[in-house]
Design a protein around this nucleic acid. Structure first.
Lengths: 211, 211
DNA sequence: CATCTCGTTGGTCAACCGCCCAGTATATTC
DNA sequence: GAATATACTGGGCGGTTGACCAACGAGATG
């Protein structure tokens, strides 16, 4: 019964992953309260009771889904050290912005869940802020401080610049349905994703000449 | 039975206004599906049946609340023509941005409802886009085009610049609870509202010298 | 092959939802 | 002052929800 060969364990992990995937989709579209465990189960094609078996209750399911979200984000945003070694500070920043915009386009459900939960509040929200959002802000805060001191980054307070940058990167994809309705554009198209990254970089770095 | 003196009509309008106010609060915090008519009624201190009497059903209530939201926004964002006459184009734009940031800080429930509904979709969303959001984008689109041509505004596509600007202005206040938790700051404080407006103006106009 | 484990099912339960309606109380009308 | 109109109440209905549980059956175990 080594790791891979156990059929039962294999099926177990497969089902769990499927449920988490469906949960992310439903939670992100409807919000926690309006999302129903039965909807999620139906989406996977299993009985609703099974979700309780794997995740105890709706709250635990949500937390596991969110934890998965942040783990995946970290792995997908990791920069190749060899690649980074050849860049100067400004290029590194630009590259990070571009990677983040691409991530937002690829996984709009991430920001959707965050926004909905931040608006709603509750214990889940506190848990999410403490374990994921606050650490993230503290890490990027130090980074930005350095670049602001060196004149690379506009001289704007931590709070404003953080929320401006993140919101500006995310919302185009969070509101992709609205954009489609108003402008007739599919923002998940690579062309528009890259254009949006270009726009952000232009906006944040045009206070100084390009390197 | 002229306009004001009718006691019954007066009470009617008062109750309707109270219900609309409570509805905006509950809808913005919980989203349409998770918000309950009974919650809204309880918040006003009336029986749940009364809401049906005044607004037919939950959907109509939501639409009236949103319509009220946009009417109020238009009136609150109106610029004094005398004041505007003394400004050049750049000052006008800066002033508009500042007014909009103040509005977002004063009424975070507006953007909250818009965002939640845009994420969720549905017939309500289509109605909202068609009647309020699309016209708004078309108006501001023409305006921005002009300023981009004159070099006042960064040369970025309509879609990106629109969503960057609006998101950057709104989200700090939409996520005010998150900001409070992470940075220990009350963003509704005038000091932070003005700082945020300053930040946006700096960011969007620093590609050219100040006037 | 017998036993055990556990992923999975289907149904029950109280609570809550939006909607509907019969009844009450009070301002308005004639 | 009687008749009417209407803001407002309270209860009931079918439907959905999250939580819970007894039972099944196929894979793991010895």
């Amino acid at each position: 019964m080594e790791d891979g060969i156990n059929l039962r364990e294999k099926q177990r992990l497969r089902t769990r992953a499927q449920i988490l995937d469906a949960a992310l989709d439903v939670f992100s579209k409807k919000g926690f309260d309006a999302a129903s465990v039965r909807d999620i189960a139906a989406k996977v094609g299993v009985n609703h009771g099974l979700i309780r078996h794997h995740f105890e209750n709706k709250d635990k399911l949500w937390k596991e889904a969110v934890a998965f979200l942040f783990e995946r984000m970290e792995s997908e945003l990791a920069v190749d050290p060899d690649e980074e070694a050849q860049m100067n500070e400004r290029e590194k920043l630009e590259h990070n912005i571009r990677l983040y915009v691409r991530y937002c386009a690829r996984h709009p459900e991430h920001a959707r869940i965050m926004v909905q939960q931040s608006i709603h509040g509750s214990e889940r929200f506190t848990w999410m802020v403490k374990n994921f959002i606050k650490p993230q802000h503290q890490r990027s805060g130090k980074n930005l401080q350095k670049h602001r001191d060196s004149g690379l980054w506009p001289d704007i307070s931590d709070v404003s610049i953080a929320y401006i940058l993140v919101a500006a990167a995310q919302m185009l994809f969070v509101l992709s349905e609205e954009v489609a309705e108003v402008y007739g554009i599919d923002v998940s198209d690579t062309k528009h994703v890259e254009a949006h990254a270009d726009a952000l970089i232009k906006l944040f770095f045009n206070h100084q000449a390009p390197s």
